[in-house]
Design a protein around this nucleic acid. Structure first.
Lengths: 213, 213
DNA sequence: AGTTTCCGTGAACAATGTTCACAAACTCAA
DNA sequence: TTGAGTTTGTGAACATTGTTCACGGAAACT
Protein backbone atom coordinates (compact mmCIF):
# COMPACT_ATOMS: atom_id res chain seq x y z
CA UNK A 1 0.00 0.00 0.00
CA UNK A 2 1.45 3.33 -1.05
CA UNK A 3 -0.50 5.49 1.35
CA UNK A 4 -0.48 5.33 5.11
CA UNK A 5 -3.46 5.89 7.27
CA UNK A 6 -3.18 9.63 7.55
CA UNK A 7 -2.68 10.16 3.85
CA UNK A 8 -5.72 8.06 3.08
CA UNK A 9 -7.67 10.12 5.58
CA UNK A 10 -6.66 13.32 3.81
CA UNK A 11 -7.65 11.87 0.49
CA UNK A 12 -11.03 10.87 1.88
CA UNK A 13 -11.55 14.37 3.23
CA UNK A 14 -10.67 15.93 -0.10
CA UNK A 15 -13.11 13.64 -1.89
CA UNK A 16 -15.77 14.27 0.75
CA UNK A 17 -15.38 18.00 0.41
CA UNK A 18 -15.75 17.81 -3.35
CA UNK A 19 -18.85 15.68 -3.00
CA UNK A 20 -20.35 18.08 -0.49
CA UNK A 21 -19.49 21.06 -2.62
CA UNK A 22 -21.04 19.56 -5.71
CA UNK A 23 -24.19 18.09 -4.30
CA UNK A 24 -24.67 19.11 -0.70
CA UNK A 25 -25.21 16.81 2.24
CA UNK A 26 -27.25 14.33 0.24
CA UNK A 27 -24.25 13.72 -1.96
CA UNK A 28 -21.98 12.54 0.82
CA UNK A 29 -22.35 8.78 0.53
CA UNK A 30 -20.11 6.16 2.09
CA UNK A 31 -19.98 4.03 -1.05
CA UNK A 32 -19.13 6.96 -3.30
CA UNK A 33 -16.30 8.01 -1.04
CA UNK A 34 -14.98 4.46 -0.90
CA UNK A 35 -15.16 4.04 -4.65
CA UNK A 36 -13.45 7.32 -5.44
CA UNK A 37 -10.79 6.78 -2.81
CA UNK A 38 -10.12 3.27 -4.03
CA UNK A 39 -10.88 1.72 -0.66
CA UNK A 40 -13.75 -0.30 0.73
CA UNK A 41 -16.76 1.00 2.61
CA UNK A 42 -15.51 -0.55 5.80
CA UNK A 43 -12.26 1.37 5.57
CA UNK A 44 -14.13 4.64 5.57
CA UNK A 45 -15.63 3.61 8.87
CA UNK A 46 -12.22 2.58 10.03
CA UNK A 47 -10.86 6.06 9.40
CA UNK A 48 -13.88 7.97 10.74
CA UNK A 49 -16.56 7.11 13.26
CA UNK A 50 -19.31 7.59 10.71
CA UNK A 51 -20.35 9.93 7.91
CA UNK A 52 -21.06 12.65 10.42
CA UNK A 53 -17.46 12.32 11.50
CA UNK A 54 -16.32 12.83 7.93
CA UNK A 55 -18.56 15.84 7.57
CA UNK A 56 -17.31 17.29 10.83
CA UNK A 57 -13.72 16.94 9.68
CA UNK A 58 -14.52 18.63 6.38
CA UNK A 59 -16.22 21.43 8.29
CA UNK A 60 -13.11 21.99 10.37
CA UNK A 61 -11.09 22.42 7.21
CA UNK A 62 -13.63 24.91 5.92
CA UNK A 63 -13.60 26.95 9.10
CA UNK A 64 -9.82 27.00 9.11
CA UNK A 65 -9.84 28.16 5.52
CA UNK A 66 -12.34 30.89 6.36
CA UNK A 67 -10.18 32.05 9.21
CA UNK A 68 -7.17 32.18 6.94
CA UNK A 69 -9.13 34.15 4.36
CA UNK A 70 -10.14 36.72 6.95
CA UNK A 71 -6.68 37.06 8.34
CA UNK A 72 -5.25 37.33 4.83
CA UNK A 73 -7.65 40.11 3.93
CA UNK A 74 -6.57 42.06 6.98
CA UNK A 75 -2.92 41.40 6.33
CA UNK A 76 -3.33 42.63 2.79
CA UNK A 77 -4.85 45.89 3.94
CA UNK A 78 -2.19 46.28 6.57
CA UNK A 79 0.50 45.79 3.95
CA UNK A 80 -1.06 48.54 1.89
CA UNK A 81 -1.32 50.83 4.87
CA UNK A 82 -5.07 51.04 4.82
CA UNK A 83 -6.56 51.70 8.25
CA UNK A 84 -9.94 53.11 7.30
CA UNK A 85 -12.63 51.28 9.25
CA UNK A 86 -15.08 51.14 6.42
CA UNK A 87 -12.58 49.69 4.02
CA UNK A 88 -11.41 47.14 6.54
CA UNK A 89 -14.93 45.99 7.36
CA UNK A 90 -15.80 45.83 3.67
CA UNK A 91 -12.67 43.80 3.04
CA UNK A 92 -13.67 41.33 5.74
CA UNK A 93 -17.21 41.08 4.41
CA UNK A 94 -15.87 40.72 0.90
CA UNK A 95 -13.60 37.92 2.03
CA UNK A 96 -16.58 36.14 3.50
CA UNK A 97 -18.68 36.60 0.37
CA UNK A 98 -15.89 35.26 -1.79
CA UNK A 99 -15.40 32.36 0.55
CA UNK A 100 -19.07 31.43 0.34
CA UNK A 101 -19.03 31.73 -3.43
CA UNK A 102 -15.96 29.52 -3.57
CA UNK A 103 -17.77 26.88 -1.51
CA UNK A 104 -21.27 26.90 -2.97
CA UNK A 105 -22.13 23.44 -1.71
CA UNK A 106 -19.88 22.65 1.20
CA UNK A 107 -20.56 25.86 3.13
CA UNK A 108 -24.35 25.46 3.01
CA UNK A 109 -23.73 21.85 4.00
CA UNK A 110 -21.82 23.03 7.07
CA UNK A 111 -24.68 25.30 8.03
CA UNK A 112 -27.22 22.54 7.45
CA UNK A 113 -25.09 20.18 9.48
CA UNK A 114 -24.95 22.52 12.44
CA UNK A 115 -28.66 23.10 12.18
CA UNK A 116 -29.40 19.39 12.15
CA UNK A 117 -27.40 18.67 15.27
CA UNK A 118 -28.54 21.85 16.98
CA UNK A 119 -28.02 21.52 20.71
CA UNK A 120 -27.07 17.88 20.77
CA UNK A 121 -23.33 18.05 20.16
CA UNK A 122 -20.41 19.97 21.49
CA UNK A 123 -19.87 22.98 19.25
CA UNK A 124 -16.86 24.01 21.26
CA UNK A 125 -14.44 23.59 18.41
CA UNK A 126 -16.73 25.51 16.12
CA UNK A 127 -17.10 28.30 18.59
CA UNK A 128 -13.36 28.54 19.04
CA UNK A 129 -12.84 28.91 15.32
CA UNK A 130 -15.57 31.52 15.03
CA UNK A 131 -14.29 33.46 18.01
CA UNK A 132 -11.12 33.95 16.05
CA UNK A 133 -13.13 35.82 13.42
CA UNK A 134 -14.99 37.86 16.00
CA UNK A 135 -11.65 38.90 17.41
CA UNK A 136 -10.59 40.28 14.06
CA UNK A 137 -13.77 42.31 13.72
CA UNK A 138 -13.53 43.52 17.31
CA UNK A 139 -9.98 44.68 16.77
CA UNK A 140 -11.03 46.63 13.70
CA UNK A 141 -13.74 48.31 15.71
CA UNK A 142 -11.25 49.02 18.48
CA UNK A 143 -8.99 50.81 16.03
CA UNK A 144 -11.91 52.69 14.52
CA UNK A 145 -11.98 55.48 17.04
CA UNK A 146 -15.43 54.64 18.34
CA UNK A 147 -16.26 55.34 21.93
CA UNK A 148 -17.23 51.82 22.93
CA UNK A 149 -16.50 49.83 26.05
CA UNK A 150 -15.10 46.38 25.54
CA UNK A 151 -18.35 44.56 26.15
CA UNK A 152 -20.27 46.66 23.66
CA UNK A 153 -17.48 46.19 21.16
CA UNK A 154 -17.73 42.44 21.59
CA UNK A 155 -21.47 42.51 21.01
CA UNK A 156 -21.07 44.85 18.06
CA UNK A 157 -18.53 42.55 16.45
CA UNK A 158 -20.82 39.57 16.78
CA UNK A 159 -23.78 41.56 15.55
CA UNK A 160 -21.85 42.69 12.52
CA UNK A 161 -20.76 39.17 11.74
CA UNK A 162 -24.24 37.72 12.21
CA UNK A 163 -25.71 40.43 10.03
CA UNK A 164 -23.29 39.87 7.17
CA UNK A 165 -23.84 36.16 7.55
CA UNK A 166 -27.60 36.65 7.42
CA UNK A 167 -27.37 38.83 4.35
CA UNK A 168 -25.22 36.34 2.51
CA UNK A 169 -27.22 33.26 3.40
CA UNK A 170 -30.57 34.93 2.82
CA UNK A 171 -29.24 36.31 -0.42
CA UNK A 172 -28.11 33.03 -1.86
CA UNK A 173 -31.31 31.22 -0.92
CA UNK A 174 -33.21 30.99 -4.16
CA UNK A 175 -32.84 32.77 -7.48
CA UNK A 176 -29.74 32.69 -9.57
CA UNK A 177 -26.36 33.46 -8.10
CA UNK A 178 -25.57 36.30 -10.48
CA UNK A 179 -28.82 38.14 -9.91
CA UNK A 180 -28.33 38.07 -6.18
CA UNK A 181 -24.65 38.94 -6.05
CA UNK A 182 -25.33 42.60 -6.69
CA UNK A 183 -28.15 42.72 -4.16
CA UNK A 184 -25.87 41.20 -1.55
CA UNK A 185 -23.15 43.75 -2.26
CA UNK A 186 -25.61 46.59 -1.85
CA UNK A 187 -26.95 45.23 1.39
CA UNK A 188 -23.50 44.76 2.85
CA UNK A 189 -22.51 48.21 1.72
CA UNK A 190 -25.53 49.70 3.42
CA UNK A 191 -25.04 47.64 6.54
CA UNK A 192 -21.43 48.67 6.99
CA UNK A 193 -22.16 52.31 6.23
CA UNK A 194 -25.09 52.44 8.61
CA UNK A 195 -23.16 50.59 11.27
CA UNK A 196 -20.25 52.98 11.16
CA UNK A 197 -22.46 56.04 11.19
CA UNK A 198 -24.52 54.58 14.00
CA UNK A 199 -21.52 53.74 16.13
CA UNK A 200 -19.91 57.10 15.47
CA UNK A 201 -22.75 58.84 17.19
CA UNK A 202 -21.66 57.13 20.36
CA UNK A 203 -23.95 56.74 23.32
CA UNK A 204 -24.98 53.65 25.15
CA UNK A 205 -26.68 50.57 23.83
CA UNK A 206 -27.87 49.20 27.13
CA UNK A 207 -30.95 47.09 27.35
CA UNK A 208 -33.66 49.75 27.44
CA UNK A 209 -37.27 49.07 26.62
CA UNK A 210 -39.07 45.78 26.38
CA UNK A 211 -38.35 43.75 23.25
CA UNK A 212 -42.06 43.63 22.62
CA UNK A 213 -45.17 43.49 24.69
CA UNK B 1 -64.27 6.73 6.03
CA UNK B 2 -65.03 9.64 8.31
CA UNK B 3 -62.54 12.07 6.82
CA UNK B 4 -62.49 13.36 3.30
CA UNK B 5 -59.34 13.93 1.33
CA UNK B 6 -58.71 17.46 2.46
CA UNK B 7 -59.21 16.73 6.12
CA UNK B 8 -56.78 13.85 5.92
CA UNK B 9 -54.29 16.15 4.23
CA UNK B 10 -54.58 18.63 7.06
CA UNK B 11 -54.10 15.90 9.60
CA UNK B 12 -51.00 14.70 7.77
CA UNK B 13 -49.60 18.21 7.73
CA UNK B 14 -50.22 18.65 11.44
CA UNK B 15 -48.46 15.37 12.16
CA UNK B 16 -45.63 16.25 9.80
CA UNK B 17 -45.12 19.61 11.46
CA UNK B 18 -44.95 18.00 14.87
CA UNK B 19 -42.44 15.47 13.64
CA UNK B 20 -40.31 18.20 12.06
CA UNK B 21 -40.53 20.33 15.15
CA UNK B 22 -39.49 17.50 17.43
CA UNK B 23 -36.72 15.94 15.43
CA UNK B 24 -35.89 18.03 12.40
CA UNK B 25 -35.79 16.86 8.82
CA UNK B 26 -34.48 13.42 9.72
CA UNK B 27 -37.61 12.79 11.70
CA UNK B 28 -40.00 13.26 8.79
CA UNK B 29 -40.56 9.66 7.72
CA UNK B 30 -43.30 8.38 5.44
CA UNK B 31 -44.04 5.37 7.60
CA UNK B 32 -44.26 7.41 10.80
CA UNK B 33 -46.69 9.82 9.21
CA UNK B 34 -48.80 6.98 7.88
CA UNK B 35 -48.88 5.21 11.20
CA UNK B 36 -49.78 8.30 13.21
CA UNK B 37 -52.41 9.36 10.70
CA UNK B 38 -53.94 5.91 10.60
CA UNK B 39 -53.44 5.54 6.86
CA UNK B 40 -51.07 3.53 4.71
CA UNK B 41 -47.78 4.67 3.27
CA UNK B 42 -49.24 4.71 -0.20
CA UNK B 43 -51.95 7.12 0.88
CA UNK B 44 -49.36 9.63 1.95
CA UNK B 45 -48.00 9.55 -1.58
CA UNK B 46 -51.52 9.85 -2.86
CA UNK B 47 -52.02 13.07 -0.97
CA UNK B 48 -48.59 14.56 -1.67
CA UNK B 49 -46.10 14.06 -4.47
CA UNK B 50 -43.41 12.93 -2.05
CA UNK B 51 -41.94 13.80 1.32
CA UNK B 52 -40.53 16.99 -0.09
CA UNK B 53 -44.06 17.93 -1.02
CA UNK B 54 -45.17 17.37 2.54
CA UNK B 55 -42.28 19.43 3.83
CA UNK B 56 -43.03 22.20 1.35
CA UNK B 57 -46.64 22.32 2.49
CA UNK B 58 -45.59 22.49 6.13
CA UNK B 59 -43.20 25.29 5.25
CA UNK B 60 -46.01 27.25 3.65
CA UNK B 61 -48.00 27.01 6.84
CA UNK B 62 -44.98 28.21 8.80
CA UNK B 63 -44.40 31.19 6.55
CA UNK B 64 -48.06 32.12 6.73
CA UNK B 65 -47.91 31.91 10.49
CA UNK B 66 -44.80 34.09 10.53
CA UNK B 67 -46.52 36.66 8.37
CA UNK B 68 -49.50 36.67 10.70
CA UNK B 69 -47.22 37.10 13.71
CA UNK B 70 -45.53 40.10 12.09
CA UNK B 71 -48.79 41.71 11.09
CA UNK B 72 -50.25 41.06 14.52
CA UNK B 73 -47.29 42.71 16.21
CA UNK B 74 -47.77 45.79 14.07
CA UNK B 75 -51.51 45.82 14.63
CA UNK B 76 -50.94 45.62 18.35
CA UNK B 77 -48.66 48.63 18.32
CA UNK B 78 -51.08 50.50 16.10
CA UNK B 79 -53.89 49.78 18.53
CA UNK B 80 -51.77 51.22 21.34
CA UNK B 81 -50.91 54.28 19.30
CA UNK B 82 -47.19 53.57 19.25
CA UNK B 83 -45.50 54.99 16.18
CA UNK B 84 -41.91 55.18 17.39
CA UNK B 85 -39.65 53.56 14.81
CA UNK B 86 -37.41 51.89 17.29
CA UNK B 87 -40.27 50.33 19.17
CA UNK B 88 -41.90 49.15 15.97
CA UNK B 89 -38.72 47.55 14.66
CA UNK B 90 -38.06 45.94 18.01
CA UNK B 91 -41.60 44.60 18.05
CA UNK B 92 -41.08 43.05 14.64
CA UNK B 93 -37.77 41.54 15.65
CA UNK B 94 -39.29 40.31 18.86
CA UNK B 95 -42.11 38.68 16.95
CA UNK B 96 -39.57 36.87 14.83
CA UNK B 97 -37.55 35.72 17.83
CA UNK B 98 -40.65 34.41 19.51
CA UNK B 99 -41.71 32.69 16.33
CA UNK B 100 -38.37 30.92 16.04
CA UNK B 101 -38.48 29.89 19.68
CA UNK B 102 -41.98 28.54 19.18
CA UNK B 103 -40.77 26.43 16.25
CA UNK B 104 -37.41 25.12 17.45
CA UNK B 105 -37.37 22.21 15.02
CA UNK B 106 -39.64 23.05 12.13
CA UNK B 107 -38.14 26.47 11.40
CA UNK B 108 -34.56 25.17 11.20
CA UNK B 109 -35.98 22.40 9.03
CA UNK B 110 -37.44 25.00 6.68
CA UNK B 111 -34.09 26.72 6.42
CA UNK B 112 -32.29 23.44 5.87
CA UNK B 113 -34.85 22.49 3.24
CA UNK B 114 -34.31 25.70 1.31
CA UNK B 115 -30.59 25.26 1.56
CA UNK B 116 -30.73 21.73 0.26
CA UNK B 117 -32.73 22.62 -2.80
CA UNK B 118 -30.82 25.82 -3.34
CA UNK B 119 -31.23 26.94 -6.92
CA UNK B 120 -32.99 23.88 -8.21
CA UNK B 121 -36.61 24.66 -7.43
CA UNK B 122 -38.96 27.57 -7.82
CA UNK B 123 -38.84 29.59 -4.63
CA UNK B 124 -41.44 31.96 -6.02
CA UNK B 125 -44.01 31.17 -3.40
CA UNK B 126 -41.42 31.55 -0.69
CA UNK B 127 -40.29 34.86 -2.06
CA UNK B 128 -43.84 36.11 -2.23
CA UNK B 129 -44.42 35.28 1.42
CA UNK B 130 -41.16 36.90 2.47
CA UNK B 131 -41.83 40.00 0.40
CA UNK B 132 -44.89 40.50 2.54
CA UNK B 133 -42.59 40.81 5.56
CA UNK B 134 -40.19 43.12 3.77
CA UNK B 135 -43.15 45.32 2.95
CA UNK B 136 -44.00 45.68 6.60
CA UNK B 137 -40.45 46.68 7.48
CA UNK B 138 -40.24 49.06 4.54
CA UNK B 139 -43.45 50.76 5.58
CA UNK B 140 -42.10 51.21 9.10
CA UNK B 141 -39.00 52.81 7.66
CA UNK B 142 -41.14 54.99 5.42
CA UNK B 143 -43.02 56.30 8.43
CA UNK B 144 -39.80 56.81 10.36
CA UNK B 145 -39.00 60.19 8.94
CA UNK B 146 -35.78 59.09 7.28
CA UNK B 147 -34.65 60.76 4.12
CA UNK B 148 -34.50 57.67 1.95
CA UNK B 149 -35.54 57.11 -1.63
CA UNK B 150 -37.74 54.11 -2.26
CA UNK B 151 -34.97 51.93 -3.61
CA UNK B 152 -32.70 52.53 -0.65
CA UNK B 153 -35.62 51.90 1.65
CA UNK B 154 -36.24 48.57 -0.02
CA UNK B 155 -32.61 47.56 0.39
CA UNK B 156 -32.58 48.79 3.96
CA UNK B 157 -35.65 46.73 4.79
CA UNK B 158 -34.11 43.59 3.35
CA UNK B 159 -30.81 44.30 5.06
CA UNK B 160 -32.55 44.74 8.38
CA UNK B 161 -34.47 41.52 7.93
CA UNK B 162 -31.42 39.55 6.86
CA UNK B 163 -29.44 40.92 9.78
CA UNK B 164 -32.03 39.98 12.36
CA UNK B 165 -32.36 36.62 10.71
CA UNK B 166 -28.60 36.14 10.85
CA UNK B 167 -28.43 37.13 14.49
CA UNK B 168 -31.19 34.73 15.44
CA UNK B 169 -29.92 31.77 13.46
CA UNK B 170 -26.31 32.32 14.45
CA UNK B 171 -27.40 32.75 18.01
CA UNK B 172 -29.34 29.55 18.28
CA UNK B 173 -26.63 27.47 16.64
CA UNK B 174 -25.00 25.68 19.52
CA UNK B 175 -25.09 26.22 23.28
CA UNK B 176 -28.20 26.18 25.34
CA UNK B 177 -31.22 28.20 24.37
CA UNK B 178 -31.42 30.14 27.60
CA UNK B 179 -27.78 31.22 27.56
CA UNK B 180 -28.12 32.60 24.05
CA UNK B 181 -31.48 34.30 24.39
CA UNK B 182 -30.00 37.26 26.23
CA UNK B 183 -27.13 37.56 23.76
CA UNK B 184 -29.60 37.60 20.88
CA UNK B 185 -31.65 40.31 22.53
CA UNK B 186 -28.60 42.47 23.04
CA UNK B 187 -27.46 42.03 19.47
CA UNK B 188 -30.88 42.91 18.09
CA UNK B 189 -31.09 45.88 20.38
CA UNK B 190 -27.73 47.13 19.18
CA UNK B 191 -28.55 46.44 15.56
CA UNK B 192 -31.80 48.37 15.64
CA UNK B 193 -30.28 51.25 17.57
CA UNK B 194 -27.31 51.52 15.26
CA UNK B 195 -29.50 51.20 12.21
CA UNK B 196 -31.79 53.99 13.24
CA UNK B 197 -28.91 56.29 14.19
CA UNK B 198 -27.15 55.46 10.95
CA UNK B 199 -30.16 56.12 8.80
CA UNK B 200 -30.97 59.33 10.65
CA UNK B 201 -27.74 60.83 9.49
CA UNK B 202 -29.08 60.60 5.97
CA UNK B 203 -26.78 60.75 3.03
CA UNK B 204 -26.43 58.34 0.18
CA UNK B 205 -25.57 54.68 0.27
CA UNK B 206 -24.60 54.31 -3.34
CA UNK B 207 -22.08 51.74 -4.40
CA UNK B 208 -18.87 53.57 -3.72
CA UNK B 209 -15.51 51.88 -3.37
CA UNK B 210 -14.46 48.42 -4.33
CA UNK B 211 -15.69 45.65 -2.03
CA UNK B 212 -12.14 44.51 -1.71
CA UNK B 213 -9.10 44.50 -3.85
C1' DA C 1 -76.81 -4.11 -12.69
C1' DG C 2 -72.85 -2.87 -15.16
C1' DT C 3 -69.13 0.13 -16.02
C1' DT C 4 -65.84 3.36 -15.08
C1' DT C 5 -63.18 6.04 -12.20
C1' DC C 6 -60.94 7.00 -8.05
C1' DC C 7 -58.67 5.81 -3.82
C1' DG C 8 -56.43 2.99 -0.23
C1' DT C 9 -53.26 -0.80 0.62
C1' DG C 10 -49.02 -2.95 1.66
C1' DA C 11 -45.76 -5.90 -0.51
C1' DA C 12 -41.71 -5.13 -3.15
C1' DC C 13 -37.65 -2.64 -4.91
C1' DA C 14 -33.66 0.35 -4.66
C1' DA C 15 -30.53 3.20 -2.20
C1' DT C 16 -28.04 3.95 1.77
C1' DG C 17 -25.74 3.91 6.65
C1' DT C 18 -23.57 0.80 9.50
C1' DT C 19 -21.75 -3.50 11.36
C1' DC C 20 -18.97 -7.51 11.65
C1' DA C 21 -16.76 -11.94 10.83
C1' DC C 22 -13.05 -13.01 8.24
C1' DA C 23 -8.72 -12.38 5.89
C1' DA C 24 -4.63 -10.02 4.75
C1' DA C 25 -0.80 -7.37 6.25
C1' DC C 26 2.16 -5.88 9.52
C1' DT C 27 5.09 -5.96 14.09
C1' DC C 28 8.31 -7.81 16.76
C1' DA C 29 10.35 -11.02 19.86
C1' DA C 30 12.60 -15.58 19.87
C1' DT D 1 12.97 -16.92 9.56
C1' DT D 2 9.16 -18.20 12.10
C1' DG D 3 5.14 -17.61 14.58
C1' DA D 4 2.07 -15.25 17.76
C1' DG D 5 -0.29 -11.06 18.33
C1' DT D 6 -2.00 -6.85 16.58
C1' DT D 7 -3.72 -3.78 13.27
C1' DT D 8 -6.03 -2.79 9.09
C1' DG D 9 -8.82 -3.81 4.91
C1' DT D 10 -12.82 -6.11 2.90
C1' DG D 11 -17.39 -6.67 1.30
C1' DA D 12 -21.35 -9.43 2.37
C1' DA D 13 -25.22 -8.78 5.27
C1' DC D 14 -28.65 -6.26 7.92
C1' DA D 15 -31.79 -2.39 9.06
C1' DT D 16 -33.98 1.70 7.67
C1' DT D 17 -36.11 4.52 4.49
C1' DG D 18 -38.16 6.71 0.09
C1' DT D 19 -40.90 5.41 -3.58
C1' DT D 20 -43.61 2.61 -6.80
C1' DC D 21 -47.29 -0.24 -8.38
C1' DA D 22 -50.45 -4.04 -9.17
C1' DC D 23 -54.40 -5.28 -6.82
C1' DG D 24 -58.89 -4.75 -4.72
C1' DG D 25 -62.61 -2.33 -3.14
C1' DA D 26 -65.59 1.71 -2.85
C1' DA D 27 -68.05 5.21 -5.01
C1' DA D 28 -70.13 7.55 -8.88
C1' DC D 29 -72.41 7.43 -12.95
C1' DT D 30 -75.39 5.34 -16.82
Amino acid sequence: MALDKEETGERVLAIAETLLNEGGMDNLKARTIAEQAGISVGSVYNLFSDLDGVHRAVNMRLLDRLGVAGAAAMADLGRRGITDVRQRLMALAGAYVRFVEAHPGSWPALLAFNRRRSVLTEPDVYEARLDQLFEIIASVLADGGFDLDEDTRRIAARTLWSSVHGIVTSGYAGRSVSRQADEIDRQIELLVAVFIRGLERGGTFAHAGPTAS
